[in-house]
Simulated assay, not measured.
Amino acid sequence: MLVAHLADLHLGYAQFNLEEREEDVYETFNEAIDISIKEGAGLVILAGDLFHTPRPNGKAVITLANALKKLKEKQIPVVFVLGEHDISRLRDVPFAFVFSNLGLMKRLKAEEPFVVGDVAVFGADKERRGNIDALIEKLHNAEQAAKGFKKRILVMHQGLTDLNKFAGEINADDLPSGFNYYALGHYHDHQEKRFANLGGPLVYPGSLDLTPSEGIKEVEKGFALVDMSGEEAKTHWIPLHRRAQFSVRLDYGTLADGVEKVMQKAAGFAKKPVVRVEVAGRGIDSRAIAANLVRLNEACLHYVWQPLDEQSDVRVYDERPQDMDQELLRLSADALKSEELAAFAVRDLLPAASEGDASKALEIAWEAFKKRSVRP
């Protein structure tokens, strides 16, 4: 059986708050679904962060609903686990459960298999660092429940310290050994790894498009097609068609010529690209840079720029950071001395406060306080 493994969809995310970039995310997701159907996938796995926020907008909801309806018509089951972006700090039902209740996709459990053909699939939702012991216990239960099946898949949305010691919450040694394929989400770069203690490949397919933490860069994005028909799981990573993004460094002394070259490169893409421009030189006048770069509006969907004054050896940034979400997270983490608190403040508390809903913001803060106060 062929299994499509997608992760970190972030439906609803709009880079630079551009409607075109939000539509780009939907297009890559729909392309992944269409390829999965065309290739004859017998199962689709969504390994967390289906939406960019716990309360997704209408376009994001409809996009997922239409894809799930298309898969159901083809009799292709869909299973999922929750990522941190799908889980609200409030005592609220995750939005993805709506589709589960309607029978359009199935939420995976650690102790109860979802069986398709000769493959049993188990899963666990995202757990924060403070609840890892409970997660490891769930994984132990999954290993016990999986013993009666010949082919087994484990789905999670967690970071492995073996691959990123700063962003990981668990180690490969914490994972149960008795699975043929480990379908993970959370890391946005495509990574495949085999560990001696695991029964099959561990795969992060990566996000389907660039997300706030990644900025502007040239990189391929895609998903995994996994052949489970043989003795071992065989993975094939499928790149998707996306709007191009790239970075260039221009010389301040020949800025006009540099801009012309950027425009020529941009003209070679089917869609107007997103571009990051660094301008290096001495005695830089930001007004002169802005006057030259304005020409990029003809060829680029969006661009950001950064002067690098070699004389002062100081980097002076444009008025607007290249990614507001990531800049807010960085500044909050610096102020609060905690990435976890920063993520809570920006992703959970700030949206409620910006809507002017004081009672909702207070409830979110109170629930978070109670959870932290009962930690051992």
Rank of each mutant, 00 (worst) to 15 (best):
F99G: 07
N141K: 15
Y181T: 04
P351I: 01
L68N: 05
T53M: 08
K109F: 11
I37F: 04
V203T: 09
Q306N: 12
S36H: 03
N164K: 09
Q264M: 08
N297V: 00
T161K: 15
L9F: 02
L104Y: 12
A7Y: 03
V274C: 01
E39V: 15
A345C: 01
E20R: 12
C300D: 04
L210G: 11
L6R: 07
L135A: 03
Q322R: 12
L18W: 03
V316P: 02
K59W: 05
D318K: 02
A244H: 14
D24S: 04
D348H: 10
F29A: 08
K106S: 14
Q306F: 05
M263N: 09
W305Y: 11
L362N: 07
S229L: 04
D24Q: 07
A65D: 14
D318C: 07
E137A: 14
H85W: 04
L6I: 14
F80H: 05
G168Y: 12
Q158F: 04
E220R: 14
R320Q: 05
G58Y: 14
H190K: 11
D309G: 02
V98L: 12
A291D: 13
Q311Y: 10
Y182W: 08
G130M: 11
A183C: 12
A333F: 03
D8M: 06
S373D: 12
I62L: 12
R107P: 15
M324P: 00
R91A: 14
L68I: 10
L108Q: 04
V98Q: 08
P56C: 06
E355Q: 12
R282G: 03
F195N: 02
K371V: 06
L50R: 06
A267P: 01
T28L: 08
L139S: 02
A288V: 14
W237G: 02
E31C: 06
V61I: 15
R129P: 06
S247Y: 02
L50D: 07
F122I: 01
K234P: 01
A266E: 00
L18E: 08
